[in-house]
Amino acid sequence: MKTNESIDLQKASQILKLLGDRTRLTMMKLLESHDCCVCEFVAIFKMSQPAISQHLRKLRDIELVKEERRGQWIFYSINQDHEDYPLISSILNHLPAQDDSISELVAQGLRICCE
């Protein structure tokens, strides 16, 4: 019998496959404590905006992240209401904090640099 804590194997496989990519996994860890916009991810990962957008699209397609418009910018955050958030949170709890990346953005004056 299925308990409230179990997750469908197909869904678990899909989530783990998405989080198996280092960039997406790092994005999720960053989003655990900081809302970020695309331009911030571009600066952190030193990747193109289209590449970052593709990663975010994959996470958004299965609703692991949500977006919120703030003025002219769109900020991404973890969807804590996702039915499989306990699994995602458990995975992220085993990873090192990524606060240094955010601190580096602040030091470079790039925190919220969407223009």
Score class of each variant (00 low, 15 high):
K46D: 06
K29C: 13
M28R: 05
S33N: 15
E32I: 02
A43N: 12
I52M: 08
T26N: 10
I44M: 07
M47Y: 04
Q54H: 10
C39R: 15
E32A: 09
I44K: 01
C36M: 15
S48Q: 09
F45N: 03
V42L: 00
D35Y: 05
S33K: 15
Q54E: 11
S53L: 08
S53D: 09
M47T: 04
C36H: 07
C39Y: 12
M28Y: 07
V38N: 08
V42P: 00
H34V: 05
L25I: 08
R24G: 03
H55C: 12
K29E: 13
R57M: 14
T26R: 12
M28L: 11
Q49W: 04
R57H: 15
H55T: 07
T26H: 11
Q49T: 09
V38W: 00
L31M: 14
C36G: 04
V42C: 00
L31I: 08
I52E: 00
L31P: 06
C39G: 03
P50F: 05
H34E: 10
P50T: 06
F41I: 01
M47P: 00
F45L: 08
A51T: 14
Q49I: 05
K46C: 03
K46P: 00
C37Y: 02
K29P: 08
R24E: 06
C37K: 06
S48C: 03
C36W: 01
K29G: 11
Q49V: 05
A43F: 03
R57C: 11
C37M: 10
S53R: 15
E40V: 00
P50D: 01
R57W: 14
S33C: 11
V38P: 01
M27A: 07
E32V: 03
F41L: 10
V38H: 04
H34M: 04
A51F: 09
R24L: 10
P50G: 04
M28W: 03
P50E: 02
V38E: 06
V38Q: 10
E32F: 08
K46M: 08
M27V: 10
L25H: 13
C39H: 11
S53W: 04
S33M: 11
I44Q: 03
A51Q: 12
S48T: 14
Q49Y: 07
R57L: 15
M47V: 02
M28K: 03
M28H: 04
T26D: 10
H55L: 06
D35W: 06
M28V: 06
L31Q: 07
L30N: 04
S33D: 15
T26Y: 08
S48L: 09
F45E: 04
L30R: 03
M27D: 02
L31N: 05
S33H: 13
R57G: 13
F41M: 07
Q54V: 11
C39I: 11
S53T: 13
K46A: 05
S33L: 12
M27N: 02
M47H: 05
C36E: 08
S53I: 10
